[in-house]
Computed example of a mutant assay.
Amino acid sequence: MPATLIFDDMADMVAAASEPDVWLLEGLIEEGDQVVLAAAPKAGKTLMASQIALAVASGGRFLGWRATAPRKVLYVNLELRPKRFGRRLITQVGGIHYLSAYRNLLAISHLRTLDILDIKQQESFSEFIRENNIGLVVWDVLARMHSADENDNGSMRAVMHAIRIASADRAHLVLHHMRKPPSGAENVNVGALGMRGASSIHGEADLIMAMHVRSGQGARYSLRFSARNVEAPDEMLIERDQNLCFFEASAQEANRLMNVIIAAFQGVQTCLAQGLLEQVMNAYCVRERRAKQLIKDAGDRGWITRRLRPDKRHEYILLTSETLFSVAA
């Protein structure tokens, strides 16, 4: 317990609440945030992390989020040889001639392991980060940063605290392994996706992004969010292009959802709610909860609306228009 306790009165708390948000990626990552990016081995989390790093370093965009200004980024690369890491970066920016726009990105690639619980190593990293005015630190990957038992919540809580200290309380992104989810389990809660030390990491992190390769048709990847401070989407379906960069697959998935919705109405303008639910469950091979989310998405897009019939059953009305049907064309 500290020798002196400092309390805030109501005026202090009101003043703190009025402080402006300082974003690295507007609406997603704020100054000082601890962010975890989790995925199964070989799923592409290093590619996604480097894409985030490049966006922040250049003042660019990552998926739907915009960097507010170029900032210095330190990428602690414990996974890839410098040659492989460099080649990936060149591919992601579109060629060696475009690298000058990313001079804010620094990398440490000579280490293969470190002990983040070692106070001297913490001080070494935090001093470097302060001296070089780093805005974002990427730690790739958590398993190579400690020797603690990842199934012990107390040990992992200490590790996550140590990473904050080593990051000098700057925003930082921690890459972490998780098991590949079984087929059909893509839509379970982020915390149940087999992430080692999940409960302690969830308790410490401000934002968790869990990515995995999807089974079945549609977008190849799913990115799910668990956030403390931001209004992140529950799930984002994404693809990866030839430059090894991820992009939102919204147009493709919207097209698929519209086709499923129209098929449920079978050429008429109304459809019983239960019939639509069953159609979506069968088309997507998902359970009821996920099917209801997809139907809600269709409603939010203005494609369908729900009403109560005189017989007390609910039905949906298909909002027909040239624009609506052109989506599914």
Rank of each mutant, 00 (worst) to 15 (best):
H176T: 08
A162S: 10
A219M: 00
S199K: 12
E186K: 01
D206P: 09
G197C: 00
S183P: 11
H172G: 00
H177E: 01
H212R: 12
A198I: 00
S222D: 08
A171V: 02
A168M: 00
I165M: 08
L223Y: 00
A171N: 01
I201Y: 00
H176F: 06
L237I: 10
I208H: 07
M209E: 03
E231F: 13
S222I: 15
S199T: 14
M236L: 15
H202G: 15
I208K: 01
V188A: 09
V213Y: 09
D169H: 14
R220F: 13
H177W: 06
A198T: 09
H172S: 12
G218S: 10
G218R: 02
H177C: 03
R224N: 13
L207Q: 01
V190G: 06
F225K: 02
V174D: 00
D169L: 11
H177P: 04
D234Q: 14
A198F: 04
H202A: 15
I208T: 06
A219D: 06
G194S: 04
L223N: 02
M195T: 10
G216R: 04
R164N: 15
G203L: 09
P181A: 05
I165F: 12
S183D: 14
S183M: 13
H202K: 15
A171D: 08
R196T: 10
H202E: 15
S222G: 15
G216E: 00
D206G: 10
L173P: 02
G203W: 02
K180E: 03
L237N: 05
G184H: 02
L237S: 07
A210L: 08
I208E: 07
R179S: 13
G216Q: 03
G194N: 04
G218P: 07
S226W: 14
V230H: 09
I238W: 02
G191T: 07
